[in-house]
């Protein structure tokens, strides 16, 4: 028993340190997003600064400093002048002394810089990109849920000739890497004049997505057959059975499908990269990448944007955690 307790303790310690490692990049992201330019790159060799700070100022806007060397060491003063390459004039206890920057330190207070977020909202055209992203997400969710649901119903509940062959196609096409169909699809959309519109991103989802067809089929197959049989005797049409009996019972599976589709489209990069050409059409993911490629080390605004893109997803996750975990488990164990 003592051994078991010890093991628990070790497990806890391992989990705790792993968790800290997993969370650290998130904290670093938020921390950087709230720092001023000067704080993002502190003195070379200094430890990473987790808490954003700003210089403490007196009522007249002068920096409050602590003297480190000389007769006034340990005393507080205010900085009167600061010129590059010269001694700074410091007022300590009524006397003005001149010190090199390494002979005093500026006192710090907690200080959040919100201007990175302002920059993110303006330079990235956040609201417009958000609207584009949501537009694509909503249509893809609707399209995927409806079409995949109908197709899955056919495979799970209607015994028709040739069903197994077609279902095999669904499974086989899941194995084919997207790179293989990428170029001909681009050629087709180009000849249709769809490049530079949302159509190539949205329309395919109305034709059933193999992964979700599979997921929903597995779920439908678990619903007792006699419920549909009873409805069939009552003269209910196949579509009526799907709508009134199967769909309400399969709500969790539909929720998983919708949620995963939303998440995928929210973060999708390759398709918008290929098909969207005007920056007025950019999704959030593309806008972030574009901004990054033009402002390589503007880490403050970049982290603010990353936070803005990630936050809604994390909120969504906490609201729907059960659906999420169930969905992942369903794909892993039955898949």
């Amino acid at each position: 028993m003592a051994n078991k307790h010890k093991f628990h303790w070790v497990a806890h310690l391992c989990l705790l340190s792993a968790s800290v490692t997993f969370v650290a990049p998130f904290l670093w992201m938020v921390s950087t997003s709230l720092k001023s330019e000067a704080r993002i790159f502190p003195k070379a060799g200094g430890p990473p600064q987790w808490i954003p700070t700003a210089d403490r100022l007196d009522t007249q806007g002068r920096r409050i400093v602590k003297v480190l060397e000389g007769p006034f060491a340990g005393k507080q003063g205010v900085e009167l002048s600061a010129h590059e390459g010269e001694r700074h004039e410091i007022l300590v206890e009524g006397k003005t002394i001149a010190l090199w920057p390494e002979e005093f330190e500026v006192e710090q207070r907690l200080g959040f810089q919100w201007k990175n977020y302002v920059a993110a909202l303006q330079k990235m055209d956040f609201i417009n990109n958000l609207r584009n992203t949501l537009f694509i997400c909503v249509f893809c969710v609707v399209g995927t849920v409806i079409s995949s649901g109908l197709v899955a119903y056919s495979f799970a509940r209607i015994p028709w000739k040739g069903r197994n062959v077609v279902f095999l196609c669904v499974l086989a096409t899941m194995m084919i890497p997207y790179q293989v169909t990428l170029i001909p699809l681009f050629a087709v959309y180009r000849s249709l004049g769809w490049v530079g519109t949302f159509k190539p991103l949205i329309i395919p989802s109305f034709f059933g997505v193999p992964f979700y067809i599979f997921l929903l089929r597995q779920f439908f197959m678990g619903i007792p057959e006699d419920m549909s049989a009873a409805a069939r005797i009552d003269g209910c049409s196949e579509f009526g059975i799907f709508l009134r009996i199967i769909a309400p019972l399969a709500k969790p599976a539909f929720a998983t499908t919708g949620l995963f589709t939303f998440l995928f489209e929210w973060g999708d990069f390759l398709n918008p990269l290929i098909y969207l050409q005007d920056d007025r059409q950019y999704t959030l993911a593309i806008a972030l990448q574009q901004f990054q490629s033009h402002h390589e080390s503007a880490w403050g605004p970049l982290m603010a944007m990353s936070t803005l893109i990630t936050l809604p997803i994390i909120v969504l996750f906490f609201l729907t955690q059960r659906t999420f975990i169930q969905g992942i488990t369903m794909t892993g164990l039955k898949g």
């Binding site: 792993a18 968790s19 997993f22 969370v23 990049p25 998130f26 670093w28 992201m29 998440l263 929210w266 973060g267 990069f269 959030l284 993911a285 593309i286 972030l288 990448q289 990054q292 970049l302 982290m303 944007m305 990353s306 893109i309 990630t310 997803i313 994390i314 996750f317 999420f324 975990i325």
Partner: peptide, 16 residues
């Protein structure tokens, strides 16, 4: 905590 990084949009996590 272990699951959270998987839902971060890939572009955001790459920049991070």
């Amino acid at each position: 905590i272990f699951f959270l990084p998987t839902i971060v949009p890939v572009v955001a996590s790459a920049v991070l």
